[in-house]
Design a binder for these strands. Structure first.
Lengths: 118, 118
DNA sequence: CCGGATCCAAGAGGATACTG
DNA sequence: CAGTATCCTCTTGGATCCGG
C-alpha cells in the first residue's frame, strides 16, 4: 500500500528553516562565512567558546544541507577553507533581519554600563 | 572595585536575537501568535508534539523578554490568552525572511511525492 | 482549563588527548 | 593545521500526575 504520510505533512517554511538551524552555533558560523571564506582556526577564533568537535559537526551539517562548501588544499601543513554556496547565500535576508531586529532591541535596552551612557 | 566585564563584551545583534530564540519551540510559538491572540489549548493544538510543560516554559521566557503578554480572565473554567507585545511585533522582519527563504528552499527540493508532482 | 512538580531519557556540547 | 575519539556534564524537553 502506498504510504502518503510524508505527503500529507504540510511543512511550514518557517519551521523548515528553523529545523536546519536550531542549535547553538549554526547561525553564527554562517554569519562568519558571510564575511568571506574562512579557515578552520579562523572560525575557532571568531567563535569564542566553541569546541573543535562542535565546529566540525556544524560545518559537516551545513555542508550536508548544501549551505557550505569545504575545500581542502593538499599542502603541508593542511589547509581547509569553508565558504558559502549559492544556496547558503540565499539565507542572507534572514541574517539581515536578525541583525536589524537585534540592533533595534539592543538600542532599546537600558545600558547597564554608566561609562557608555557617559 | 568596579566590574566592567559586562561593558567590554561587545554584543553582536545577530547573536543577541539568536540567544533569545535558540530552542526547539520559541519561533514557532511566535509564528502562532502572529496569527492573533491564542489560548493555551489552541497553542497546544497548533504545535503538535509540544508538551504543556515546555509550552509554559517558552511562554514564560517570551513574557520575561517582553515579547509576549499573558492575560488571565477571572472565569470558571479559567481562561488565559497570549498575545504579542509591540516589542514582539518587531520581530516580524525575521519571520518574513524565514518564511521567504524557507519557501524558496522547499521549492528547490525535489518533491518526494509523485502525487504532488503529478 | 491552566499549569506546576516530578521523574527520566536523549542529545548537545565542552575538555582533553591523539592522529595524519 | 585539521579533525577524530573519548569522556563527561548540563540542558532540553517529553510523560505523567496532581492541584487550583
Amino acid at each position: 500500500m502506498l504510504d502518503l504520510s510524508q505527503c500529507s505533512e504540510i511543512k511550514c517554511p518557517i519551521q523548515f528553516v528553523v529545523d536546519l538551524l536550531d542549535n547553538k552555533w549554526s547561525v553564527l558560523v554562517l554569519r562568519e562565512l558571510f564575511g568571506g571564506d574562512r579557515r578552520t582556526h579562523e572560525l575557532l577564533a571568531a567563535l569564542p567558546g566553541i569546541s573543535t568537535k562542535t565546529l566540525t559537526q556544524r560545518l559537516r551539517e551545513l555542508e550536508a544541507q548544501g549551505l557550505v562548501e569545504r575545500r581542502v588544499y593538499a599542502e603541508i601543513p593542511p589547509r581547509v577553507e569553508y565558504s558559502l554556496t549559492s544556496k547558503g547565500h540565499q539565507i542572507q535576508p534572514v541574517m539581515v533581519a536578525l541583525h536589524q531586529v537585534g540592533s533595534q532591541w539592543l538600542e532599546q535596552e537600558s545600558c547597564v554600563c554608566p561609562l557608555i551612557r557617559g
